[in-house]
């Protein structure tokens, strides 16, 4: 994700505040559609679709990165067809119920929200995103928590990778990690990642960190950023108005 955010594309160059506001507006409007408004949600899909195309981002790559989150999002409305069986339309012997429609809309809302967030992070980077949050007067502690959590996750993953590698090299015939050692590996992972996290914290505090990240934006908010913001806000508002 850091690599995607570091690319020099037109979307990456847009001020983080403009991108954050557009994403928030998009997600808010998306979730505000009624649970049977499938057409409105299809129109809202134009936002992520156009950004994927215009910013030359790989959609399959996004699906691969989001493969853990998307199934969870899709499970949200899974039981709606069982609870709401009122027929909405019939195609021959097949009856489409309102429960089926609401299941699809709930899934779409989740998917669109996740894809919009993905586009924001992939084109902005976590540091710039936290800078934008501070510009919106979000408490500094929240931005710091987001940044530290991101750092901790990467440490945790790196340590997990090392432990699993060391295990697999000494248990070559074992497929995966045997359940008998899950406990001890999880304990090791926790202890080692905490040690590493502590060292990182020491390194930060030795360089003046007192609980808040400071970041100077690479570019000031310019007219092109304002146009980006205004254009998308108008389009999103129009989608909400005409397909309510």
């Amino acid at each position: 994700m850091d690599e995607l955010a570091a690319r020099d594309t037109w979307l990456n160059r847009v001020h983080p505040l403009a991108k954050l506001l557009v994403t928030l507006a998009c997600i808010s409007v998306t979730v505000s559609f009624s649970k049977y408004n499938l057409v409105g949600l299809l129109v809202m899909a134009v936002y992520p679709a156009s950004l994927f195309i215009l910013n030359e981002l790989s959609f399959p790559d996004a699906l691969r990165r989001l493969r853990v989150v998307l199934p969870l999002v899709c499970m949200v409305g899974l039981f709606n067809p069982f609870f709401d069986r009122e027929p909405a339309a019939s195609f021959g012997s097949f009856t489409v119920t309102y429960g089926m429609i609401s299941m699809v809309t709930l899934m779409m809302k989740g998917i669109l929200a996740v894809l919009s967030s993905y586009l924001l992070v992939a084109s902005t980077g976590i540091e710039s995103l936290c800078y934008a949050l501070r510009r919106l007067h979000v408490p500094a502690i929240l931005g710091t928590q987001i940044l530290l959590t991101c750092r901790y996750i990467s440490l945790l993953l790196a340590e997990a990778d090392r432990i699993v590698q060391a295990y697999s090299l000494r248990a070559p015939r074992q497929k995966g990690v045997h359940f008998k050692v899950w406990g001890s590996l999880a304990g090791q992972l926790l202890l080692r990642s905490m040690d590493r996290a502590n060292e990182v914290y020491e390194s930060m505090s030795l360089r003046g960190f007192t609980g808040e990240f400071y970041d100077h934006p690479k570019n000031a908010f310019q007219w092109k950023d304002a146009w980006y913001l205004i254009l998308w806000l108008l389009l999103i508002a129009a989608a909400r108005y005409f397909w309510r």
Binding site: A6, G125, E127, R151, R196, E199, S203
Partner: peptide, 8 residues
């Protein structure tokens, strides 16, 4: 790896 914690 303990010293460096930012992205670039």
């Amino acid at each position: 790896d303990s010293q460096l914690f930012m992205s670039t």
